[in-house]
Amino acid sequence: MFDIVRITVKGIFRDRVFHGILMAALLLPLIPSISQLSMRQVTELSVTLSLSLISFILLLLAVFLGGTSLWKDMERRYTFSVLSLPITRTTYLLGRFFGVALFLLITAAVLGFVASVVVTIVAGNFPPDRPVVWNNIYLCVLFDAFKYILLLAVAVLFSTVSTSFFLPIFGTISAFLVGSASQQVYDYVHSSSGQVLSPLVRQAATALYYVLPNFSAFDLKVNAIYGVPLSTGGIVLTVCYLVVYAAVLLSVAAIIFSKREMK
């Protein structure tokens, strides 16, 4: 499996999709000048913009690499040669997943480092009212990477059931939007103003909330930007959630992939 992980990471570095998406990272050095538009929170704005850009780049990578990785192999019939090797399909699938996941972590680390340089420059020129809480910023980038690793698992699951790249790409984007809003919908449905909805709608929304991935849990931007304290218990629970949810998705994907007919 480690060979497949290695091959996957190497392959991505040569991938044109990756090169295109990397262009977006060229915006990072522009952040110090854009941040000066803020009236009272220049440093905070630089943190906001850096984290948003990192999150956006990781989203694109997760969707496009996750959605096309398996599909490309099948389209180019690489799967035949790979699966003739003495490895199971599950190993192959997991290898691909962990390869892209590792790549996301590497990208997050590199972009996080560049962002910390950017924020340091801005904070030096425009000292913020409250000191920058670096641990929260690093944790926020790490959890962004976790969030997109979970999304990657969704993309891999879609890839195993689909014969084209449409479902993996657009299905993953939809899953991201729905999963980011599910907490708000749940909160609204259970608030006093949500009581006007019919009980059926409320129950359906609650059921979906438990089934769909909850991406808002991984969003630590407020803690990173404004130095709002984090809860250790919440952090640990979120990591457990990621591990269990991704494992469920991957095991379903592995079952489907093993049963799938390769033409």
Partner: peptide
């Protein structure tokens, strides 16, 4: 705002700052 919040996904802070800069 509920709609805006849902569309903004994890980019709420940027959208908010964008609105303020529009006003400014």
């Amino acid at each position: 705002v509920e709609v805006l919040r849902a569309i903004a996904a994890d980019q709420k802070q940027v959208v908010a700052e964008g609105l303020i800069l529009d006003v400014l």
